[in-house]
Nucleic acid binder design. Structure first.
Lengths: 209, 209
DNA sequence: AACTTTTTGGGTTGCTCAACCCAAAAACTG
DNA sequence: CAGTTTTTGGGTTGAGCAACCCAAAAAGTT
C-alpha cells in the first residue's frame, strides 16, 4: 500500500495538530457533502488554515482523501463504541447494535462519512482508494470475528459456528442497513438489518433458548 | 417528484431510440467509472451521438443522472431475474439469491451501477437524487414484500411474520453484501449476507423442518 | 540566541467540464 | 411533397478547482 502520509521530515506537536485539524475538517465536510461536494478550498476554510497549508501536509487531494479513509478505518465501526474485548456475549452484541441504531436516529439518519459511504462514492472510481477501503473493511471484520471468537470460547456459540461468515454477515448488515437508512432517511432498514444479523448469529448459540 | 424526463413535445420511435441509447451509455459508463468519473462528453462518444444531442434530450447532467437512477429503479433488483409472481417459495428465493451471487462472480465482483452504488455516491450530495433513490429502494422493498406475502399466503411462512421487516432485511443484505463484495472484490461478503438473510427468513417458516 | 518549523496571504496556471448556441442537412411522418 | 423532427458538427463561455509558487513573518525548539 502506498504511503500517502509521510511527507514532512519532522512534525512538531503544533504541526501534528494542524494536520489533524485539516483531516478532521475533511472528515466532517465529507460526511455531509460527500467527497465530490468538498473542495480543498472548503477544507481550508473549515480548518481555518491559510493558503498552501493543505498542500504542505498532503501531497494532493487524493492523498487527503486516502488519509480520511484510513482515519475512518482505524476508528471503531460504531463510533464511540470500542469493541476490543468488550463484545463477548449476546447482550453486549445487542447493546452494540442498539448503539449503532441510536446514533443514526440522533443524526437524523444523515451521513457519517463511514467507510460504507466512502466505498460507494470511491470504490468504482479509484483503485488505490478501493484498496484502502477494502483493508478497512477487512480490519472491521477481524474485530467482529475476534468478538465472536471470544463468545465461542466462552461457550456462548457452538464450536462449529463459521465465525468468518458470521462476522461478514454482521458487517454487511451494518453497512447495508446504514446505506438504506441514510438514503431513505428512515431508521427501519438499519434496525431490520441488524435484527436479522443478530438473530442469525443467535441461531448458532450453544444453548438454544 | 420533479419530472426530469418530459422535455420534447413529441418523440418519434427514432427519437426514443436515441434517447435510450444515451441513457444506456450513461448506465454502462457509470457502472464502471462512477458518476463523477463520467463526463457528458464521454457519454456522447459512447452513445455515438454528436454535439448537442445530450442536451436535446436531457435538461442537464443532473437530469441525465436522475434518469439513470429511475431506469435502474424500475429494473429488477437482480438483473435478469424477474420477481413478479415468480418468487413464491423458499427454493425460488434461494435461486434468486444464487443468481445475484453468480452474477457478481461473473462480473469479477465489479460494479453494476445498481441503486446501491448510486446511493453511496449521490446520497449525501444531492437531495433530489436522494429522493429518487429512496423511491427506488421503496419499490424494491415492495416487490420483495409482495413475494414474501405470496409465500405466507401459500402457507410457507407463519402468519405472524413481519413481512416489512423481512423484506427490509433481505434488501439491506443484498445492498450491503454487494457493496462489500464490490469494494473487496471478493464474493464472500455477498454470499454471507444473503445466506444470513435467507436463513433469518427461513426461521419464520410455518413448518420448522 | 541560533535554528528550524510553521503559518500567513497573496498569488498563478492550466485543465476539465457543464451548459449552451446555431444553422444546415438528413430523416422521418402523414 | 410539405411539415416536422432529428441529427450533425462545429462552435463558445464561464465557472470551478487542483496544483503549485513564494517570500516574509510568527512560533516553536534546543
Amino acid at each position: 500500500m502506498t504511503d500517502t502520509t509521510a511527507r514532512i521530515p519532522k512534525l512538531t506537536r503544533k504541526g501534528q495538530a494542524t494536520r489533524d485539524r485539516i483531516l478532521q475538517a475533511a472528515v466532517e465536510l465529507i460526511a455531509e457533502r460527500g467527497v465530490v461536494g468538498t473542495s480543498t478550498e472548503d477544507v481550508r476554510k473549515a480548518a481555518r488554515v491559510s493558503g498552501s497549508q493543505i498542500y504542505h501536509y498532503f501531497d494532493s487531494k487524493q492523498a487527503l482523501i486516502r488519509a480520511v479513509i484510513t482515519r475512518q478505518a482505524d476508528a471503531e465501526p460504531v463510533p464511540g463504541r470500542p469493541m476490543m474485548g468488550a463484545l463477548d456475549c449476546f447482550d453486549a452484541l445487542r447493546a452494540w447494535a442498539d448503539a449503532a441504531i441510536q446514533r443514526q436516529e440522533e443524526n437524523g439518519c444523515r451521513g457519517e462519512c463511514s467507510l460504507g459511504s466512502l466505498a460507494g462514492e470511491l470504490g468504482a472510481a479509484d483503485e488505490d482508494s478501493r484498496q484502502d477501503l477494502s483493508n478497512g473493511f477487512l480490519r472491521w471484520q477481524g474485530l467482529l470475528e475476534q468478538s465472536l471468537r471470544a463468545m465461542r470460547d466462552r461457550g456462548d456459540l457452538r464450536p462449529d459456528a463459521d465465525l468468518g461468515e458470521l462476522s461478514l454477515a454482521l458487517l454487511t448488515a451494518l453497512q447495508g442497513g446504514t446505506l438504506l437508512t441514510q438514503t431513505m432517511r428512515d431508521i427501519r432498514p438499519l434496525r431490520a438489518a441488524l435484527n436479522a444479523a443478530l438473530s442469525y448469529i443467535h441461531s448458532f448459540a450453544a444453548d438454544q433458548r
